[in-house]
């Protein structure tokens, strides 16, 4: 079974925000909520880097450990999903997440007030695959259609990779061999406990 992971090559991201737009459009994410965002550090200064950040679907996800009502769970492919039926909006997942991924809309088409919303790796939620209720609560289930997350699929510089962790890490390894390590794959070690970082 493949283990799904994101990889953001900090040497390639050009801060175009296409990943953010793709995510919002594909999943019809409501106004005010960004499941994915581009963080720029040292903006306008030497060493400026941009990194596309969303839920990294961590190997030992801290959000799962802190959720007081067992809302968040791992799929067989290592994707971290959650049930909006069970979420009580306490925000503990936000505080534990090293990527600031969980979002808390007040109103909108993603459930009711205060339910957590985050990247699903375009894998929907606990509802039936590709059902209307799944789309309304969690967005598109591209994984059930045999597709990868749209943010990575349409990244023009292929800074953002998504897929089987072995495959994406091999692609990154080949890049490092050709060009050197550079700024690194930000967040990889933090999310996947040093595997390949």
């Amino acid at each position: 079974m493949a283990r799904m992971k994101f990889l953001c090559d900090a040497d390639r991201c050009i801060e175009c925000n296409a990943c953010v737009t793709a995510c919002k459009n594909e999943n019809e994410v409501p106004w005010g909520i960004n499941r994915r965002r581009v963080v720029t550090i040292n903006d306008g200064k030497p060493g400026e880097r941009s990194i596309s950040v969303a839920c990294m679907h961590c190997s030992d996800a801290p959000c799962i450990a802190v959720c007081p009502v067992d809302t968040i769970y791992n799929t067989e492919e290592g994707i971290v999903l959650h049930s909006k039926d069970l979420c009580i909006g306490c925000g503990y997942c936000f505080y534990s997440c090293p990527f600031g991924a969980p979002q808390f809309p007040q109103v909108g088409n993603f459930g009711t007030r205060g339910k957590m919303d985050k990247c699903t790796f375009c894998a929907g939620g606990p509802e039936n695959n590709n059902s209307d209720v799944e789309f309304k609560k969690y967005g598109r289930n591209r994984m059930a259609e045999g597709k990868l997350p749209l943010c990575a699929e349409m990244c023009s510089t292929k800074a953002l990779l998504a897929g089987d962790g072995d495959v994406v890490s091999n692609i990154y390894r080949e890049r490092v061999v050709m060009r050197g390590f550079g700024a690194g794959a930000w967040g990889w070690g933090r999310a996947y406990q040093g595997q390949g970082s």
Binding site: V69, D85, L86, I88, G89, T112, R113, G114, K115
Partner: peptide, 11 residues
């Protein structure tokens, strides 16, 4: 409606 209990459902 109006309860303090958070909205949780078990479908």
């Amino acid at each position: 409606p109006g309860t303090k209990m958070p909205l949780q459902r078990m479908t």
